[in-house]
């Protein structure tokens, strides 16, 4: 169990707690210097490739600009108009719905699956490999298969028919469209989360379980008192990634929509931004929408980090 060194390293980053007290200020300073030295390439990359564009986008968001002619400064006009734009508000609502449903559901499923895949049974390596396949399959291929699954004469409706339920229009029906897309996304996102959870599970020393068993703890209480608390760093970590990823959902919606054109029921924030900037020649408007989204994601992430002390247990 404990011999899986490479996977354990994966979670190392989130496992080491930020220590408050260290002996000797001099050593701390030299640690910081070394840390900065090693981080420099990344920091330069971030500044040039991320911070730069983010700030530039803010500048663009204050203009009316079609990318081809001279931008006009319009102040906060784009932001004011966005707040009254039905399509933007719908995109915002859809994205929040997608996030709120897909993140917890996806994490819970991944956790269950990781626990199941952590068993010592014959051929477990093969079973694990099968579950990781979606990770290495192209998004378009996945979407094509799911379109078939959801199609009127597809297998999902065949199953419904077998139970005497009338066939559903999974991606065409406005009320079913988003849940259908969420189901596909969760399936698609599972393996990445399962890998992290599996690594977390394997990093839990077997002695804890042995000791608990000796004390008479059952399967369920061992899971609740040992597995879950020790897995909280992994859950926290995947949660952040899933939260940010969910806000940025684009591909699934884009591919599953009728000719690449999501309607009212499935338009998301990133699609709205893409549409405004690259289809409708409104780069300033798209920039403003990007900034609103950036702020929402930042606030959501900060709030999420605030909850950390309450439920995340570092060893």
């Amino acid at each position: 169990m404990t011999s899986t060194v490479p996977v354990a390293e994966l979670t190392g980053a989130v496992e080491s707690p930020p220590r408050r007290f260290r002996p000797g200020a001099a050593r701390r300073r030299s640690d910081t210097r070394w840390a900065l030295l090693f981080l420099t390439p990344t920091l330069i990359g971030l500044a040039v490739l991320s911070a730069g564009p983010i700030l530039a986008t803010f500048g663009i968001s204050l203009t009316k600009w079609d990318m081809l002619t001279t931008p006009q400064f319009v102040g906060l006009d784009n932001y004011v108009r966005l707040i009254g734009d039905d399509r933007f508000l719908r995109a915002l609502r859809n994205t929040v719905f997608y996030t709120v449903v897909s993140v917890p559901l996806g994490l819970a499923l991944a956790l269950a699956l990781a626990t199941a895949l952590n068993q010592q049974i014959r051929g477990i390596a093969w079973i694990r490999t099968a579950y990781f396949l979606p990770l290495v399959t192209s998004a378009t291929a996945i979407a094509l298969v799911w379109l078939w699954i959801y199609s009127p004469a597809g297998p999902l409706n065949d199953i419904l028919r077998a139970f005497g339920i009338s066939p559903q229009r999974w991606v065409a029906d406005p009320t079913l469209a988003m849940p259908s897309i969420i189901a596909m996304s969760i399936w698609q996102g599972l393996p990445a989360n399962v890998i992290i959870f599996l690594a977390g599970l394997q990093a839990i020393p077997a002695e804890y379980y042995d000791a608990a068993s000796v004390d008479g703890a059952g399967r369920r209480s061992r899971f609740r008192s040992i597995t879950l608390p020790l897995l909280t760093p992994s859950i926290f970590f995947t949660g952040v990634l899933a939260l940010i990823g969910a806000f940025q959902v684009f591909d699934q919606v884009y591919v599953m929509a009728n000719p690449g054109k999501p309607g009212e029921a499935t338009i998301t924030l990133v699609y709205f931004i893409y549409e405004a900037g690259f289809r409708n020649f409104k780069m300033g408007y798209a920039g403003a929408a990007s900034w609103i989204m950036f702020l929402i994601v930042a606030v959501a992430t900060i709030l999420y980090f605030r909850t950390q002390n309450r439920w995340v247990h570092y060893q």
């Binding site: 959801y150 199609s151 009127p152 991606v171 065409a172 599953m256 009728n258």
Partner: peptide, 9 residues
């Protein structure tokens, strides 16, 4: 005519 389905038929 069949009811249009996004991307399906």
């Amino acid at each position: 005519m069949a009811q249009p389905v996004a991307g399906g038929t």
